[in-house]
Amino acid sequence: MIGRGLLWFSVVVILLFLFVPVAIILLYAFSDSNIQGWPIGVYSVKWFIATWHDGEVRAALWLSIEVAVVATIIATVFGTLAALAVQRMRGYGNEIVSFAAVLPIALPGILTGMALNSYFVLWGIGLSFWTIVIGHATFCTVIVYNNVVARLRRLPPSWVEASMDLGAGPWRSFRLVTLPMIASALGAGALLAFALSFDEVIVTTFTAGAQTTLPLWIFGAIRLGQHLPEVNCVVFAVIALTIVPVLIAQRLMGSAATLHK
């Protein structure tokens, strides 16, 4: 019989395992030194200032935001459409769509990247901003789809039926009944899709040409061992930037959970 104390102890150990590395990397951003040693000798914010004025970092950040916004918009539309369709499907059709929707996140990213790269090479399409967006939008769609499908499953169909009985057309019923009910799931899905795209590196290396997104900049800098103090600051900012949408998304999903009590 395993003691309950031991169970709780392991929970604490696992939480430390999950969060100590993040805490350490956040601390490194305030290190004054050029060398990435531990313990940190002098703390300062001088590298934040240097990073802020680095044109390369700014350009990469801006590109990442642009890609993430466009990919999220495409994903929100397609994910919602697919979710609305699958909700009305039965039998094989439903199973095929559900299975297809799992593929982009269940298959390794290197496959998606390699497949798209060979595809573009085969067609003679040059890699550009849009090829990055295409790669991101596919798995972002899956994230939005999953969120919306989970919500639709819990909505009683009788509400839309009631709205139609009361004389509202399908479009009006969608706008006034379905949309408000799925709005928070949609918002959460979009925020998560944004965070995922903003952070993606494995697929992006295969679909980006001369473009450098922020993760590609970080990856390159770490590998070449250049600008490491700046990498620390960028990483600090990236964690802060992705945590905000994720926290909001969790609030949105949390409020939805209490909706049906």
Binding site: L18, P21, V22, P215, F219, V231, V235, V238, I239
Partner: peptide, 16 residues
């Protein structure tokens, strides 16, 4: 939270 926070940042943390 860690699931959605930066993948590269977390790998880099372990490198350090």
């Amino acid at each position: 939270l860690p699931l959605w926070s930066s993948y590269l940042a977390r790998v880099y943390a372990w490198r350090l």
